[in-house]
Amino acid sequence: MNKNRQIKEAKIAEIKEKMQKSEGIVLAHYQGLTVEEDTELRKNLREAGVEYKVYKNTLSILAAKELGYDGITNLLEGPVSIAFGYEDPTAPARVLNDFAKDHKKLELVGAIVQGEIFDAAKTKEFASIPPKDVLIAKLLGSLKAPLSNLVYLLNAIKGKKESEEV
């Protein structure tokens, strides 16, 4: 086996591993970004715990097909970058979409979220979902509110009965 083939097979294995570990994967066209813009984007993604890579489309397609993601073949056309979110499935979409609002050269192409393939429109919808910790905080807040109201009500009843006894 020649050296070039070994390198390609190693890259395919790397891409497959990243795809398997990822909760959310977002594909984006990045052509036209300046070096400064790309550096800023990579910094924002890193801060959000997202890994950002550019691979050859043919290698990405081969890795995706081996994992059963045949539907992303049409999304991997032209210069495409891949953002891998390992903990929060919406983080790559959220960061890339926020960046794309100010930098029109960046365009979301599609996503794979927990094994399902989505187009650009659905990917933008995922971008509007808050981070996991924010969703948990909202849930806890909504669970806490009725309990707080019950405690307030019981204290008010107790206070009223105590004032009537005096």
Rank of each mutant, 00 (worst) to 15 (best):
T123H: 10
T73K: 14
A121N: 15
L62P: 00
I112C: 05
D119Y: 01
T39I: 08
D119K: 02
I82N: 05
A111S: 15
L59G: 09
K144N: 15
D88A: 06
K144G: 00
I82Y: 05
A28M: 02
K124N: 13
P92Y: 12
G68C: 04
A48Y: 06
Q114H: 09
E125P: 09
L147D: 05
E125A: 12
P130I: 00
N57M: 07
L45I: 03
Y152Q: 02
A145K: 14
S142F: 13
D38Y: 07
P146G: 07
V95G: 02
P146Y: 02
Y30S: 00
D70V: 04
V134L: 06
H103T: 08
L139H: 12
D102N: 11
V35R: 00
A48F: 10
V113W: 08
Y55L: 06
A120K: 09
N149D: 14
D119V: 11
L45S: 03
A91R: 00
E77A: 01
S60F: 00
V109C: 01
E37M: 09
T34N: 00
T123M: 03
K104A: 15
L76M: 14
A100T: 09
D102M: 06
G115I: 09
L150H: 10
Y55I: 03
I25E: 09
V26N: 03
N74A: 13
D70R: 11
D133T: 11
G32A: 08
A100K: 08
K43S: 15
G115W: 02
E23H: 08
L143F: 15
A137L: 10
K56R: 15
V134W: 05
V50A: 07
A145P: 00
S60C: 10
V95D: 04
N149K: 13
V80M: 05
L67E: 04
T39H: 09
K138M: 12
E36T: 12
P131G: 06
A127D: 02
Y52K: 03
T123F: 12
E66F: 07
V35K: 04
T34C: 01
Y52S: 01
A145S: 14
K124G: 04
P92R: 08
G115T: 05
V54C: 03
Y152D: 05
Q31P: 01
S22E: 05
A100I: 03
E36N: 13
Y69N: 14
D98V: 06
A93H: 07
Y30I: 07
S81A: 15
G49W: 07
K104Q: 15
S148L: 11
P130K: 13
A28T: 02
A120P: 04
E66I: 01
L45C: 12
T90M: 01
E116K: 15
Y52R: 08
V113I: 15
E66L: 00
F84L: 07
K132C: 08
K144C: 08
P79S: 14
L76W: 07
D70S: 14
E125T: 02
P92F: 12
A121E: 15
E36S: 14
E51S: 04
Q114W: 02
A63G: 11
I129D: 03
V109N: 11
E37R: 08
K101S: 01
E23V: 09
V151H: 10
K105P: 07
I136S: 14
K124Y: 06
E107S: 06
K104F: 09
K53T: 06
D70C: 00
G49K: 00
L140V: 10
A111P: 03
L27E: 02
S148D: 11
L67M: 13
I129Y: 00
K43Y: 14
A64Q: 01
L140W: 13
K56F: 10
